[in-house]
Design a protein around this nucleic acid. Structure first.
Length: 271
DNA sequence: AGCTCACCCTGCGAGC
DNA sequence: TGCTCGCAGGGTGAGC
């Protein structure tokens, strides 16, 4: 489900109801996420004051006065603030009860999401240490993209998606950004000219930026912290539009498979 | 090093 | 209101 725009949308919507509030209790109904939820989480969180919400790649970091809760939403996870009286439903794995009377609820049917605890004295975490630059970082531009793709023989779509050169670009926005940049997703990354890398870097930033403005994409089940769906999917240029006409050149949008993931593109204007 | 693939898990829609 | 299959926006780790 969530790529960078969805995680950022979640972060923004959760900031007001969370920051400045204290945790009254934490309830873990199912510890079996991608990695087991730490045994001490309920004890550690109880009484903690939430001081900030940050995002790094597709991770959400909930900073408290005694450490940081590192949350990944995986494919199907969502974090929403609900009234404390609302009964949990299936796959509501974790509740963080706040002194406001509301509850931060983690819901994740596929359990590909995760929760880690970072004690205050820990500067980082192995999961965060090796992450590539954020697409909105100053260092991420065409020159950077050109430099780090030299010698890479894999398809550009798989390279921008795999998280080692740039973070936060998942399957939807990889297809969308490549269409915006008019680059064929099967092009070997190492063959991209500097000019095309410039276009791609800009396209990635514009695509993700626009998606954040629209509250993310809700293809199946994504919702923000208030339970609201995103609107980007209605502006999608290629994703989910196979067989339809390209809005730039009129050719038919195609669906192919790259590394077991769906890729949508227009063979007319993406070269 | 980099590339490809299998795998983790549940739900849903398509097809029978 | 049946069954089976394939697919879904994530990432990791093994093998080449």
């Amino acid at each position: 489900m969530p790529e960078l725009p969805e995680v950022e949308t979640t972060r923004r919507s959760l900031e007001p109801p969370l920051v400045g509030h204290r945790v009254v209790s934490a309830i873990v109904r199912d510890r079996r996420l991608r990695w087991p939820v730490p045994d001490h989480l309920e004890h550690t969180l109880t009484g903690a004051a939430i001081v900030a919400l940050r995002r790094r790649a597709k991770y959400l970091l909930i900073d408290t006065d005694r450490g940081t809760l590192l949350v990944h939403l995986g494919m199907s996870g969502s974090l929403t603030v609900v009234p404390g009286t609302r009964a949990p439903v299936k796959h509501d794995h974790v509740d963080i009860v706040l002194d406001s009377g509301e509850t931060l609820r983690f819901h994740d049917p596929r359990r590909f999401g995760s929760m880690h605890w970072l004690a205050t004295h820990e500067a980082s975490h192995p999961l965060l240490a090796e992450l590539a630059p954020e697409p909105f970082d100053d260092v991420f531009d065409g020159a950077y993209l050109h430099r780090v793709t030299r010698g890479r023989s894999a398809a550009v779509k798989q390279v921008i998606m795999n998280g080692t050169l740039v973070t936060g670009v998942g399957n939807i926005y990889a297809s969308e950004a490549l269409h915006r940049a008019a680059i064929n997703p099967r092009t070997r990354a190492g063959r991209l000219s500097r000019a095309r890398c410039d276009r791609l870097a800009v396209a990635i930033r514009e695509t993700l930026g626009r998606a954040i403005e629209l509250g993310g994409s809700s293809l199946r089940d994504y919702v923000d912290g208030h339970g609201n769906a995103g609107e980007f999917q209605s502006e999608s240029a290629v994703y989910g539009r196979e067989g339809l006409a390209c809005n730039r050149c009129g050719e038919t949008i195609r669906l192919i498979r790259q590394g077991a993931r769906a890729t949508y593109y227009c063979a007319g204007c993406q070269r």
